[in-house]
């Protein structure tokens, strides 16, 4: 079994459960930027609709759900990790938080077709907003590089600049956005 099969199994399980979910993290970033390697697949789950235990139960014994819950450091969202034991591929489930942008990002999610099944993903603006926040608050250089990649690949006309700047002003990340836009404007 390879990790493509793993991703398909997890998405199928989420769709079967009618889970409120979206794929986030580096895989979602790959949709809009230059694809890069990823060691995990991250999902946001709406706690009102489903939970990681239900997903793990449906997936069966090829997966192991960690008992311990941890927290993501920017929005303090709770996280549960599911491991596909054969490949070591990690599935991380983040609970949808009460953070205003987290809620907005989830409400604006869109669906794409992935191997003939629907998969829910954030919009390009929300990927940029989230990654900028991580780059500034979490001080992670790779998040700024991810935003640079997305801005370089996307055309300006594909991005809702008003919405984007509204949130970067709230998060204090507009300066970094402008630096990255200037860096990629000649492509």
């Amino acid at each position: 079994m390879n990790v493509l099969d793993v991703a398909v199994e997890v998405i199928d399980a989420l769709n079967t459960l009618n889970a409120g979910y979206m794929l986030v993290g580096s895989l979602a970033t790959n949709l809009y930027g230059i694809p890069r390697n990823t060691n995990d697949a991250d999902f946001v789950l709406s706690p009102q609709i489903t939970d990681p235990v239900s997903v793990s139960t449906l997936l069966g014994t090829a997966y192991r759900l960690d008992n311990q819950m941890s927290f993501e450091s920017v929005t303090l969202t709770s996280r549960r990790v599911l491991t596909h034991t054969e490949t070591g591929f990690l599935i991380e489930f983040f609970e949808l938080s009460e953070d205003p942008h987290d809620l907005m990002r989830f409400s604006r999610r869109v669906h794409i077709e992935f191997l003939n099944r629907p998969a829910f993903v954030p919009t390009v603006e929300d990927v940029i907003i989230t990654k900028l926040r991580w780059a500034v608050t979490g001080k992670r250089a790779k998040d700024a590089l991810d935003v640079r990649s997305v801005l370089a690949v996307q055309r300006t006309s594909d991005i809702d600049a008003v919405y984007l700047r509204r949130w970067t002003d709230v998060h204090g990340t507009t300066k970094l956005l402008d630096q990255l836009l200037a860096d990629t404007k000649h492509v």
């Binding site: 493509l4 790959n30 694809p35 794409i112």
Partner: peptide
């Protein structure tokens, strides 16, 4: 610049698959 132009030409599904295929290559 070539990487950017290639990424623009790829479908969303192809790009989603690419990250997972790179994991398999590394593995």
């Amino acid at each position: 610049r070539d990487k950017i132009l290639n990424a623009r030409a790829m479908s969303p599904e192809r790009k989603l698959r690419a990250g997972l295929e790179l994991f398999e290559l590394n593995r």
